[in-house]
Amino acid sequence: MKGCTKTNILIENDISPEMLVLLRDGSHAAYEEIYLHYADSVHRFIEQLTRSGEAAREITQEIFVQLWERRAQVDPARSFKGYLFTIARNAAINFIEHQKVRGKYLEYSLHNNNESVGPSDEAMIASETALLVEIAVSRMPRQRKKIFLMNHEEGLNPGAIAERLHVSKHTVESHLATAKKEIKKMLE
């Protein structure tokens, strides 16, 4: 964004309040109009969220079934996208919970239920930090990732890593410095 001139064109892609009044009053035509114009982008978003095309297909349908069933709660004066988000969020959570019940996520759930009292705020922040570090590490080039993990998880010093990987100690140190910089940037 730096150095670019902003043109400030607002792209607000919400449906008209009139259409929402019709939907609230039970118009099939309004429902179908809204459905057709939002379903594709809703599907794309849910697919990004669940990493599954099949899940996206099911959840998208569920979202719009819910929209019809709760049409009386639509407030034409408020953001439609915001309302649809609430429905979508709950539909996605339900879906992932079901998947978990089906055993796909058993391992993780066991791990999670061990904490009888919910994790403390401190622990939460720690886990958020841990995720950020993992993201930064996952983005590192292979060699740097390897060196960083050898240093951090196996506790090897630069000299030992250099010996194992047949590279110079300087290379290892420079990779570790860059890795630290990348992580620090992620945590800023």
Binding site: H37, Y38, D40, H43, F64
Partner: peptide, 15 residues
Amino acid sequence: DVRYEKPGRRARKSL
């Protein structure tokens, strides 16, 4: 990401 847009084949099928 979610926006009003021209319906595609998938939206029609889903509807």
